[in-house]
Amino acid sequence: MSENPQALRDNVGARRAGGSSAVDAAAGRILDLIRARQLNVGDVLPTERELSEITGASRNTVREALRTIRTYGLIEPKPRVGAVLADGQSIAIQNFFAAHMDVSRSSFADIQGFRRIIEVGIGDHIVLNATSDQIEALDDINARIVESRSIEEAAENDFNFHMALIGLAGNRMLTDMYSFLSPVILRIMTIGKEMRPVLADTRAAHGEIIAALRARDRLAYAYLMSRHLDFALRFLPEEPASKT
């Protein structure tokens, strides 16, 4: 019986915290290959020998990397064909991509930019339509952040606050989209809290956003949310300048 995908993701995260293993590195390069070649469901991956040449890893390492990827549900073996991209397992796929995502300043900016479009964009609707009880419920969720017993729990409580905020827009498609991105957003939040584990600051920033909603102040909400989403960028290392 295969291991639980969530447990595997946790194991991968633990190994990465202490330094990427050769298997993790090979899995990441195979993921890069899938992206670069824009492989679709049913497309066949290169053979183990070819992947070994492409990634520079031994065939044993490639075999273990493929086993990890297969456990996440991203690929499946096909007799007399080889490993093919699987279908219908979106949660497993998003977990794998999140676990192997390199968080650079540029990728962080892209993700936070996407979040800004959504979370700032819904401000007008929330300010005009959210009830006082709904806004107070946000305050209750926010209070759980400082009660977190681990970085992972703090990230989850942080995400729950933003997810509840999205829910106030009353748009199911928007909620589903944000939920689908949860592994990636949670990874960003976890990294941020590893670099600067001051949970009181997160609660305070959320509290200012809640205060703007209570005051029905759209401008203050937009400013405070944008500032909050940009804040963690200062804790990521500068990327080297590209050579021309």
Rank of each mutant, 00 (worst) to 15 (best):
A92D: 11
N95D: 09
D124N: 11
E153D: 14
V103S: 07
Q89S: 07
D87F: 06
P77T: 02
I145D: 02
I118E: 05
L74F: 01
E153H: 09
H100F: 12
L85H: 03
G73A: 02
P79S: 12
Q134F: 01
I91V: 15
E156I: 09
D110Q: 11
L74W: 06
G73F: 01
I141N: 09
A130W: 12
R149H: 09
V127T: 04
S148F: 12
G123W: 09
V81G: 08
I141C: 02
T131N: 12
V146D: 05
A109I: 00
V127K: 01
I93N: 15
R105W: 11
G123N: 04
Q89Y: 01
D110P: 06
F97Y: 11
G123L: 03
G82W: 06
R116K: 10
V84D: 04
L128N: 04
H100E: 10
D124Q: 14
D110F: 01
S132N: 13
S107D: 08
I126Y: 11
R80K: 08
A98N: 10
M101C: 00
A86L: 01
I141T: 08
A98K: 11
S90D: 14
I118V: 02
G121F: 01
S150K: 10
L85D: 03
A137T: 13
G82Q: 09
L85E: 07
P77L: 05
A143N: 03
V146M: 04
S150R: 15
G88V: 02
I75F: 00
T71M: 02
D133C: 08
R149A: 11
D140V: 14
D140K: 15
V146R: 04
R144S: 03
V146W: 03
I122C: 13
A99I: 09
